[in-house]
């Protein structure tokens, strides 16, 4: 029973000091949760602390691998706009990669 931080984490540090079990640590390329220490905050708080402050949708998964903060739940940005934005970002990124290899 443990939460997990995945690669969309932007290393903002917000979750780290909140964990009642010191389960979160700074690592490369992003913060990590020590699965042995994480209790999902049960017994300490009503809500998992890391997932309650994390500003990045989808960066934290529960023990079933489900996004605790799904897309659109925090920013209120409609899904299709986000998808468009992501596609544009990816295109820019790809163009930059192509430029480099050219």
């Amino acid at each position: 029973m443990a939460f997990e931080i995945i690669e969309s984490c932007v290393n903002c540090y917000a979750c780290e000091p909140l964990c009642p079990n010191d389960a979160i640590y700074q690592a490369k390329p992003h913060f990590m949760i020590d699965a042995d220490k994480c209790t999902e905050c049960i017994g300490d708080f009503m809500d998992a602390q890391c997932a309650s402050i994390c500003p990045i949708e989808g960066a934290i998964l529960d023990d079933l691998g489900t996004e605790v903060n799904p897309i659109g739940s925090l920013t209120g940005i409609p899904m299709e706009l986000l998808a468009q934005y992501q596609a544009a970002l990816d295109a820019t990124y790809q163009a930059a990669l192509n430029d480099k290899s050219a």
């Binding site: 917000a14 402050i53 500003p55 920013t75």
Partner: peptide
């Protein structure tokens, strides 16, 4: 000070 305790609609924490 990287952490924030609120979200504003004019801010994107992913942006850098």
């Amino acid at each position: 000070a990287p952490a924030c305790n609120i979200q504003c609609h004019y801010c994107n924490r992913k942006y850098d």
